[in-house]
Simulated scan of single mutants.
Amino acid sequence: MKKKYIITFAVLLVLSLALAACGGSKQLTMLTGGTGGTYYPLGGEISKIISDEAEMKVTPSSSNASADNIQALADEEADIAFTQTDVMANAVEGTNSFEGKAVDNVLAMGSLYPETIQIVTSANSGITSVEDLVGKKVSVGAPGSGTRVNAEQILAAHGLDIDSDIQAQDLDFDESTGGIQDGNIDAAFITAGTPTGSVEGLAATSDITIVPIAQDKIDALVEEFPYYAADTIPSGTYGLESEVTTVAVLAMLAVSDSLSEDDVYEMTKAVYENTGKITHAKGKLITKESALDGIGIDLHPGAEKYFKEAGLLD
């Protein structure tokens, strides 16, 4: 009997040492986006903040972004992910890229900042309006991204069809700006926080234009899809001489409903109590006071607990 206790103690000692070696922290995966967008660098910072402030280790990973990220959460291939509020709403409703396959096991953690729809082209392309995209080679975003849905809706608001009126190219942000620089495509839809790294890189070597969306089309989009909001790209961004009117959705963090209330509470608190540590330009737009903006789906109970404690929910 004494020998049995000695063996048991030895096993427990080995296990405790193993846990101590890894900090006793849970290992979680965060899906971000393509390396040329905003999600990737910002996701790296947010992952570090959670890892530093909570009893868990969050590892960021690049991805095709919004729709693919939600599907990965639904398939339990990741724990937390960046997405767009509009794409999240589509997933819950089973519409657009989630037609016939509604998602019911992904919940909201909180929103982050406006994501601007940017229609990028070279300054000498002759493209000055959305209607000028007819017949052109246009990137509509990586497969499974929210950008494609935005492109489809914006084109439709102008009476254009994504499959027949343009030569749609399924490219990520870096491929899109590289294609414009090389002359392989004419324009690209890019949905990301401004300034966007890949667009900045293009603007550093080429004169570019951001195609504006007319006010009546903005009004129509906002009326039909309430998750859109009017937005403006300020003059000086990418070297632009004047501001550009467009629309935006919101970036948000979504989580698997399999995560515990305690874990999501700790993650939510870590992010929204430490936004001052975010050095990315979008950090100044991320606040706990705006964290519920545009959230059209249920909050995870852990996130709900934090926002109630913060006085932002009844």
Results as ranks from 00 to 15, higher is better:
Ile278Val: 09
Asp257Leu: 02
Leu253Ile: 09
Asp257Phe: 01
Thr287Pro: 10
Thr246Asn: 05
Tyr238Asn: 02
Glu261Asn: 11
Glu241Ile: 08
Gln215Phe: 10
Asp216Met: 04
Thr237Val: 14
Ala281Asn: 14
Val249Lys: 08
Leu259Gln: 03
Asp263Ala: 11
Thr275Leu: 04
Ser258Arg: 04
Leu221Ser: 08
Tyr228Lys: 07
Tyr227Ser: 14
Tyr265His: 02
Leu259Tyr: 04
Val271Pro: 00
Val222Gly: 06
Lys217His: 10
Asp262Gln: 13
Ala270Arg: 06
Tyr272Phe: 15
Asp219Ile: 09
Thr279Val: 14
Lys282Asp: 14
Asp262Ala: 12
Ala220Pro: 05
Thr232Gln: 12
Lys282Arg: 15
Tyr227Leu: 15
Gly236Glu: 07
Thr246Ala: 01
Tyr238Met: 11
Asp262Met: 10
Glu273Ser: 09
Tyr272Val: 08
Ser260Arg: 02
Asp216His: 13
Leu285Lys: 14
Lys217Val: 10
Thr287Cys: 10
Lys277Ile: 05
Leu259Asp: 04
Ile233Cys: 07
Ser258Pro: 06
Met267Arg: 02
Ser258Asp: 09
Asp216Val: 13
Thr287Glu: 13
Leu259Ala: 05
Ala254Gln: 00
Met267His: 02
Ser260Asn: 01
Asp216Ile: 11
Lys282Met: 15
Leu259His: 03
Tyr227Trp: 15
Thr275Lys: 02
Asp262Val: 13
Ala251Ser: 12
Lys277Gln: 13
Glu266Pro: 04
Thr245His: 13
Thr279Arg: 10
Gly283Leu: 05
Glu243Asp: 12
Val244Gln: 02
Val249Met: 09
Ala229Lys: 13
Gly276His: 10
Val255His: 01
Val271Asn: 01
Lys277Arg: 12
Thr268Arg: 00
Glu224His: 11
Ala251Arg: 03
Thr245Phe: 08
Ala248Ile: 01
Val247Pro: 00
Asp231Ala: 08
Thr237Asp: 05
Val244Ser: 04
Tyr265Asp: 01
Ala220Lys: 11
Ser235Gln: 12
Met267Gly: 02
Ile213Met: 14
Thr232Lys: 07
Val264Asp: 00
Ile286Pro: 05
Lys269Phe: 02
Pro234Asn: 07
Ala220His: 05
Thr232Met: 08
Gly239Ile: 06
Thr246Arg: 03
Leu253Arg: 01
Gly283Asp: 08
Asp263Leu: 00
Leu221Lys: 04
Thr232Val: 15
Lys269Trp: 04
Ala281Asp: 15
Lys269Tyr: 03
Glu241Asn: 14
His280Pro: 14
Glu261Ala: 07
Thr287Asp: 13
Pro226Lys: 09
Ala248Gln: 13
Asn274Arg: 10
Ile278Met: 08
Leu253Met: 10
Lys277Pro: 09
Glu273Asn: 12
Met267Ser: 06
Ala220Tyr: 07
Asp262His: 12
Val247Leu: 09
Gly283Thr: 05
Ala270Glu: 09
Ala281Arg: 12
Ser256Pro: 12
Glu223Lys: 11
Thr279Asp: 14
Glu261Thr: 07
Ser235Trp: 03
Glu261Leu: 01
Ser242Tyr: 12
Val255Thr: 02
Asp262Trp: 07
Val249Glu: 15
Gly276Ala: 06
Leu250Tyr: 15
Glu273Leu: 10
Ala214Thr: 15
Val271Arg: 01
Val222Cys: 13
Thr246Cys: 07
Glu273Asp: 10
